[in-house]
């Protein structure tokens, strides 16, 4: 029994070793983009790059970050694709990337790419409220348009937002409020909003998932999460807060030490090509490449025409550095 088993292991090991030696034309891509998007992009990529087999591993931002750090000694991916810039700015991830100046990079404004070309972000997402319309009617409140609207006592215990300590989404909301309103008033608003908060969730999408099934009236979450809910037919309205809409950029980069730099680079070039942008315009709320058509989802969800005016100018480098302090102050402020 044992012997047979050992043989089995050995057999499996040899088999795997053969798989492990990447044959040319195959690249492994780690991504935190949404499942549906990934499928659509890869279909377009297959047409544009028929000779490259793209193997994508899709995990949520947090899980993928943990996986990348754990794999740091022997990275498995060739390309990091659609991953939150705030997390890339952490050297544990950023140091695993190799500078590469992708073709078409000059289209992007400076704030959407790294100075040393380690990453560039053609797309992004925004913080957004998911408002459950039937429940809003029930509690007799006005449609909230900005964070301060949520101070209405009618919302007491009716709002859910992610915990900034567990979720990047929660953090980007807190950071946007603090950067927009300044330290003192920002913390005051966060403290006042606490009365309306029923709970702080660990995941960034859960607040919207709760609002869509009517557990709570407002879920502070992300634009794409809201758009998914709306397209599935839930009675939701998406609201981009007019005052402090935090947003996150989804960046791409070349993993240092890749076995297949040629194909990895061609894939990165593709993410800035017309073939890719035509799909961005179908799915993404934030596209940083100029003159890309707006997505129909964005229309359905009533996204404002000119995003630049709504989006709060985020300072990612600053917010990344201050992260630890902000999270611990947030805990003390809300006391939960």
């Amino acid at each position: 029994m044992t012997m047979r088993y050992l043989k089995w292991i050995a057999g499996a090991a040899t088999g795997l070793a053969m798989i492990g030696t990447a044959h040319a034309g195959t690249i492994t891509v780690y991504t935190a983009l949404e499942e549906e998007e990934v499928a659509a992009y890869l279909e377009a990529a297959k047409e544009a790059l028929p000779d490259i087999e793209v193997e994508a591993l899709r995990l949520s931002t947090g899980d993928l970050g943990a996986r990348l750090i754990a794999e740091a000694d022997n990275p498995q991916a060739d390309v990091l694709w659609g991953f939150a810039v705030t997390n890339i700015l952490d050297p544990q991830i950023g140091d695993q990337l190799e500078p590469y100046e992708a073709a078409g990079l000059d289209q992007l404004a400076d704030q959407y790419k790294a100075d040393d070309n380690r990453w560039f972000a053609p797309v992004g997402y925004m913080g957004a409220f998911c408002v459950n319309k039937p429940r809003l009617e029930e509690i007799g409140a006005e449609m909230p348009r900005k964070w301060t609207d949520l101070l209405d006592p009618a919302f007491e215990g009716e709002v859910v937002m992610p915990d900034p300590g567990s979720s990047g989404t929660g953090y980007l909301m807190v950071a946007a409020i603090l950067q927009g309103l300044g330290e003192e008033e920002g913390w005051q608003l966060i403290e006042d909003l606490d009365a309306s908060m029923a709970q702080y969730t660990t995941s960034g999408s859960r607040p919207c998932r709760m609002a869509q099934v009517g557990e709570y009236t407002v879920g502070a979450s992300l634009s794409f999460v809201a758009m998914q809910g709306i397209s599935q037919g839930y009675p939701l309205e998406m609201v981009i807060p007019e005052d402090y809409a935090g947003y996150e950029l989804e960046a791409n980069g070349l993993m240092a030490g890749t076995d297949n730099p040629e194909d990895a680079k061609r894939f990165l070039d593709w993410t800035l090509s017309d073939s890719a942008t035509s799909v961005y315009s179908e799915y993404k709320a934030v596209v940083t490449i100029p003159d890309v058509a707006r997505s129909p989802l964005a229309d359905d969800a009533n996204l404002p025409e000119n995003l630049d005016e709504v989006l709060f100018p985020m300072d990612f480098a600053a917010s990344g550095k201050e992260r630890e302090g902000i999270i611990s102050k947030w805990r003390d402020t809300v006391g939960r």
Binding site: G62, D63, A66, I69, A70, D163, G165, S166, S167, T202
Partner: peptide, 14 residues
Amino acid sequence: ATEIYSQVVGQMNF
């Protein structure tokens, strides 16, 4: 258990 998640997955403090 939530605290581990928040340290590792939320803040990348392995």
